[in-house]
Design a protein around this nucleic acid. Structure first.
Lengths: 239, 239
DNA sequence: TCAAAAGTGTTTAGCGTACACCCATGC
DNA sequence: GCATGGGTGTACGCTAAACACTTTTGA
């Protein structure tokens, strides 16, 4: 039984794209990076930075390339999230999109619009309005994923500057989960994990007692992980 | 700036498939369902039940259809797992595959090979040998996913018959995790969740004290979930 | 001296862990 | 009556949870 290659041709008429959900945290708020499209379909709409994958390009590599070409951002660690394939989600034909997401320190990058992007900015996660394609749904899936994974993996630190205060860390969790946490218990839990190092500095220019700055000890985390340690922060809920 | 539709044509030359990782549990062992292909590429190789998605077919629907057509299995709850898109993973052109997975009760189905499948059987998860395409990698990703999610979601019950003993449940966890659990603590933990109902029957025909049979109370789980209950079984490790 | 956030200690209750023995059945 | 797995109780230690006051700084 030899294959008839022509029979298969009918399947080779689709395209796929990658779309990147880039989370940042700034001024105590969770944000995502959006571009404004200058191309149909959805010209002038805000959208996730994403574009077509080339015919023999690896998916992960495509996500990196597209992000770099549209935003100028390099060395962003992208993780695959989910694939969206509703039949008529793109006006030009069958296009499925593989969504990726990443957590970045906003201060590390100065995104500049290029390619299909005429504009680019950080948007508050809860003020997105209408987005191109099914990108709002993609953002929602990414946010749900973030809520879960920030609980059991020490990924929140990727959103914070290299040195941060415990209150900033707490606000990050509160912002992602939309809840309030009890200060003493949060600090006790975090510090008891032995993953933060006092960098010996304090906040400057605040009109109150300045907070100590900490850094995340990634090497220590890797050691603990090998020993079977499980990172976990609970939404203990306040009251 | 109007789009030039012809410019985009170069992107519309790819295909995608769905591949299903179907887990079952039988004779105390974790298994997956494989078919033997009768079509190139990889004719005569064992493979996951999967095939091309039609041009305007929804991905989730395609996974269901393909599974039904190849195995006769209906009403299988499939969940999307991950998308695999290494450039030259398929000899006929660019094909990315969206992998789905499911947990089923082996006794509920009697799979029969059809379509591109010349044969179909359950395989022990740790005796798979060589599989078609990158299907071994897909199975590994699915297994890792199962190990994690069985811990925090009550999905193990989907692999067991409607009435099961606590020891069967424990063996299921041990088989998936490859560890041993402490009997008393496991039972205490499981029963304390108030999710199992004694069905009032016992095992028959065993050469020892017969074990009570339980069923999973799904309705109760939904209630608890709403109240913020988090299912969790730990790999307490024995000794 | 006031406002504003940082920082800390203690008590309580529940849960994970470790561990050893009796029970019911088939053969 | 013996082999086989089913089934249970308890003590200990840790940690999550709840809660209020003092400290440090800038304005």
């Amino acid at each position: 039984m030899l294959p008839d290659k022509r029979y298969f041709d009918s399947f080779f008429k689709s395209a796929f794209t990658v779309d990147n959900v880039i989370f940042g945290f700034d001024e105590g708020k969770l944000k995502i990076l959006l571009i404004r499209r200058n191309e149909e379909p959805y010209a002038d709409y805000w959208a996730l930075p994403g574009y077509f994958v080339q015919q023999y390009e690896d998916l992960d590599a495509a996500a990196e390339r597209v992000l770099r070409e549209m935003t100028g951002m390099e060395n962003v660690y992208l993780e695959q999230l989910h694939t969206f394939g509703t039949p008529y989600r793109h006006a030009f034909g069958r296009v499925i999109t593989v969504a990726y997401y990443s957590l970045v320190k906003i201060a590390d990058f100065r995104p500049r619009a290029a390619g299909v992007a005429q504009d680019i900015t950080w948007h508050l996660i809860d003020e997105l309005g209408v987005l191109a394609f099914d990108h709002l749904e993609i953002v929602q899936v990414a946010l749900e994923h973030l809520k879960k994974s920030i609980r059991t993996r020490p990924i929140g630190f990727e959103l914070l500057p290299p040195a941060f205060t415990l209150t900033e860390l707490q606000h990050l969790y509160e912002s992602v989960w939309g809840t309030e946490l009890e200060k003493r218990n949060f600090r006790k839990k975090i510090l008891s994990m032995d993953l933060l190092r006092d960098v010996g500095k304090v906040q400057k220019g605040v009109a109150h007692r300045p907070a100590k700055l900490y850094r995340f000890d990634e090497q220590r985390y890797r050691e603990l992980e090998k020993e079977g340690f499980n990172f976990e922060v609970r939404d203990g809920g306040k009251k």
